[in-house]
Structure formats: C-alpha cells, structure tokens
Design a protein around this nucleic acid. Structure first.
Lengths: 158, 158
DNA sequence: GTAAAGCTTCCCCTGCGGTGGAAGGTCAAG
DNA sequence: CTTGACCTTCCACCGCAGGGGAAGCTTTAC
C-alpha cells in the first residue's frame, strides 16, 4: 500500500509517517519504480506499537531504542519494563512537583483576596506575587536536587 | 550598575537578562556613553518579580502581559488572580492526566511479570506494550476533550 | 602600554514531535 | 491532453526559555 493509505489505516498524517521513518521507529519500506514508498501490513502493526508505546509515555528515542534492542538481542521485555519503572518514578516526581505548585498557586490566590489593590508598589509590579524568598515555593532547590534527566512532560500529547 | 553586577544580584546570567529585556519583561535601561547598559535598583526588584511569577507557573508572555496591564490600568491584581485561577485549574487537569498515565504504566509493568519473553511477535516488537485499543489508556479522547490551550508543563523549570 | 575582564550585537543551537510549503515527478480518469 | 490527486525531496518553522560563540568595543588593573 502507498503512504496515504497507510496513514489512513494508522490514523496519522503522511508527514508524520515520513517523520517516523526518519526518526528510526519505522523501517524504510520498499520503493516502487516511481519512487513511491510501498508498505505491507507489518507497517500497520509497527505504527500501532509506536502509538501504544507513546501512550505509555515513551519518547520516540526510547521506542527506537526498544526496537534496536529487539533487533540485536531478541525480546526487549526486560528493557521495556525497566523503562516503565523509570517512567513511573519520573511521573511520581512530576506529580509531586505539580501538586506542590498547585497548592502554592491556590495559596497565592486565596491570599490575594485579603489584599488591597492600591497596595501594589511600582517596582514589584503586583503584590499578589510576593517577591520575598520565604513565601515562594522552593523550585530552585528542587531543580538542583532533582535528577538531571527528564524535563520533558511525559505522555500528555494531543 | 552594569549588567554583570545585576546578574549577580539577581542570580541570573548576563545572557538571561538580555533575553528578558528582549522578551519585554525587563524595561530597556539607560545606556552609558560607551553603550553599556546601566541599571538602577528597580531592575533588581523587577527581576525578583519575574522570578517569583515564574515560580508561580507564569510564562514570560503572561508576565509581560501582567506588566502591560499594570502600565495601562494600574494594579493588575485582578488579572493576576484570574491567571492564578486558570493555572490552578490547568494544574488540576495535568495532575489528573499524569496520575492516570502513571497508573497505566504501573499496570503495564505489573502485567509484564506474568508474560513470557518468548511470546513477543515480530511486528508488535514487544508484547509488554499491548497494541490493542482496549488496554491502552484513552489519551486521544482526553486530548480531544481537553481545552485547546496549555500543553506546556506549567512551572517545573530547572 | 598591554593584558584581562567585561561589554556590545549578531546569528545559530538545544529538545520534542511534529507541521507547512515549494518545486517537481507519477498516475488514473475524463 | 489535461486536470487533479497523490507522491517525492528539501528546507524552514512552531513553542519555550534560554545557551554558545564570534567579532569587535571599553574599561580596569598592573
């Protein structure tokens, strides 16, 4: 089948499929004499895997790595479960961060109800956002203590 | 004071300060005859506000907007509390999404313990990641139902 | 006088997952 | 024979918050 048909089967755009090939998560297909790409059913299965892995929070780079492990060493299940473990831990960290941030944002908003709008000073722009260290959530300390990997928002695509 | 000194006071790099000026969250300072930027103390206060607002999850574009509101309409507190409300709601959504994803990831990992690595089929790459619709967390439905704004990971910078 | 540090503007690069468009080739129907 | 749909490659761009480095001034310290 040609790329447009594959795109329709997979629920992706033609652009995305070429992008996946270039990203190394979809093997280069045969070509017709015209130069058109020519796919078989395994491409559909592969794209399903890619979508499922993305839904599980894996990046294209990780998916490519999983595929490479499979090609070299056989079933990559161990590798995949390691990835899943790491992602679950990352998600726990990220959820904790966002929860702390949300609580701080709510606290600021609630505090704002008791403030006089006229009390804003020029330099500070708006006293709803307090600029003293003590009242701010400790983001810098978190960032330093946090692992160097993963600033990426895991999962959550459109 | 010159830009390097301001950077040290604010705990930022010289690059970042020039970037903030260009981004519209720090006003253009006076220049010395040499062309060097010359800041006064209000720049320090402004940068403190920018950092605090960032820590509260506001983007530079939003911070610029808050500053613009203040310049046009006086105290922007109402605008700021509206932003905080919107961010709190965004964070709630995001936390819910990440929590659902984390649960799904854990479920996949736990399910993997009962699988035989030899059972992986070629096209599917690895059966730890099931490619059938039913077992996948419903990300596409979320994305469609979700608000069009904010894919950005709010807060959480390094 | 000269070296080092600091400053200026300028443009490009990062990650991530794509999207948009231009210029051109191919194929089927009418 | 032409129109339109489909395909090809290539290059550039999106958001976000900066970082890297070049080429060329200015200021400071010795």
């Amino acid at each position: 089948m040609r790329i447009g048909e594959l795109a329709e089967h997979a629920g992706l755009t033609v652009k995305t499929i070429r992008f996946y090939e270039q990203a190394g998560v979809l093997p280069e297909p045969e070509r017709r004499p015209s130069g058109y790409r020519d796919y078989d059913d395994s491409a559909v299965a592969r794209l399903r895997f890619v979508k499922a892995a993305q839904a599980a929070g894996l990046s294209l780079a990780e998916i490519r790595e999983v595929i490479a492990v499979r090609d070299r060493n056989g079933p990559p299940c161990r590798h995949v479960t390691d990835l899943l473990n790491a992602h679950a831990a990352d998600l726990d960290r990220r959820i904790a961060e966002l929860t702390a941030l949300r609580d701080e944002v709510r606290r600021l908003r609630d505090r704002a109800d008791g403030l006089d709008p006229a009390g804003c000073e020029d330099a500070a722009v708006c006293h709803v956002i307090p600029t003293d260290q003590a009242s701010c959530v400790q983001r810098s300390a978190d960032a330093v203590a946090g692992s160097p990997r993963v600033e990426r928002p895991i999962g959550v695509r459109r």
